[in-house]
Nucleic acid binder design. Structure first.
Lengths: 235, 235
DNA sequence: CACGTTAATATGTGCATGCATATTATCTTA
DNA sequence: TAAGATAATATGCATGCACATATTAACGTG
């Protein structure tokens, strides 16, 4: 890798050079690196360009920037990973398999006490409960339990959700502003072992998600994947 | 929320306004939105500023941008989540608990066949194998199995890893450029149930990670967490 | 010397401008 | 008409400049 080949007039080029200096310990972790102005002079470019490169490094957590205090190499670069949580249909189809889902249950229910803390809905108000099984090539792929706040997604009341999945419908009709996401492992109980075609007690990968639009909760989902599921990403 | 309060002279302000238009379906999913120049005129700011706001929205996957083709609202906004995978010590200490770890095993070994594909090392070359148990307040927190490529981290040979953990040492001494990360669920076998103080067969959350520096593999880790562990993030 | 005030400074951001580049639309030409 | 050349256009990026803002260092003053 010849450094001379890198174009230090582009912000990406400058980022590469800075990255290499950090990797090669030219600038030690915790050490302060030269100011934007100095770097700009060194690379013969505008401060804006250096700024862009440094901003990008700061975003990925490799350097810490503070006004007046300058920029320093992060001591413990946090290992950030960006997970892409696709719509299950798309995930299955990306694997080259055919997607299908079947709605096992659909009813109005009071909000289960378990969710009272996380999911602030007027008490007494019913929420829509759905149980869905997702298939890939006719083999169970994931089991879904979902509560939908009808106040946040009124149209859901009229939807059967047998054709289009609740997930897809909500993505398009009740966009969320933020949410909580968590992952954990769970033992297959009798129901799940039957639905997911897994031996009872098998460790299953699960994901739980709550989404809000502003302060209004939209939906709570728990997805439990069939045995062998792995969630992957690159860092 | 009064829109008039938002400062449309700052790129974050403009981002908020655009975000709201997308949420409120002023611009439908898939629909093309006005050009940077038009928006700049509307907000009475420079095109650069609008560009910055749109770039940010594009990064989060909410809009898709193409030269000449313009910007359009994403049809299926990919649900991205940024996970921060901390050093275990920091994770434990952030919980207000005391961290401790004990090295259970440390030896040179040939690379196990299981890893031959992922972890390209000269055959016959030994790698350093470590087994560590991490504690929080003297209760087992996670069980770690790690292979270190000595060619990539020569200093590791001299390290006992009983004081400073391999994780922390590597972070500081053999920075990686990229890696693969995956999460899954696994049943506790006899060893793990003993080490992690879990009933045999309990579903455990596990993470596997391989990191490289360029083309040279550095380390392969498998972390298995004690029962009840949840990995959380916000979206 | 302790503590509050003020100045210095590095990053953060906005603007106007110009050119680069990818992609689409249009216009030729065989 | 179809294929290829060419023009039009929206985003991408670099520059120089000005000013905003957070934070630290220096300075007084009691």
């Amino acid at each position: 890798m010849d450094l001379a080949l890198i174009d230090t007039n582009s912000w990406t080029g400058i980022r590469e050079v800075l990255l290499r200096r950090i990797h090669d310990r030219v600038w030690q972790p915790g050490e302060q690196i030269p100011h934007e102005a100095d770097l700009a002079e060194e690379f013969g470019c505008a401060r804006t360009t250096v700024n862009r490169a440094l901003r990008d490094l700061a975003e990925s957590g490799l350097v810490i920037r503070k006004r007046r205090a300058g920029t320093r190499v992060a001591l413990n670069p946090p290992q950030r990973a960006t997970l892409t949580i696709p719509i299950i249909r798309e995930e299955v189809e990306a694997l080259g398999r055919t997607y299908r889902h079947s709605l096992l249950e659909r009813e109005l229910r009071p909000l289960p006490p378990m969710l009272h803390g996380a999911f602030q809905v007027t008490l007494g108000e019913d929420v829509l409960f759905l149980k869905t099984l997702h298939f890939a090539d006719d083999r169970p792929y994931a089991f879904e339990e979902r509560y939908i706040n009808l106040a946040a997604a009124p149209g859901a009341h009229e939807m059967a959700f047998d054709e289009v999945s609740a997930n897809e419908w909500l993505v398009h009709n009740a966009p969320y502003s933020h949410g909580d996401l968590s992952f954990f492992a769970i033992n297959a109980d009798k129901t799940m072992s039957r639905k997911l075609d897994a031996a009872s007690g098998t460790a299953l990968f699960a994901m739980e998600r709550i989404t809000w639009s502003g302060k209004v909760p939209i939906t709570h989902v728990r997805l439990i994947f069939a045995p062998g599921y792995r969630m992957r990403t690159e860092i």
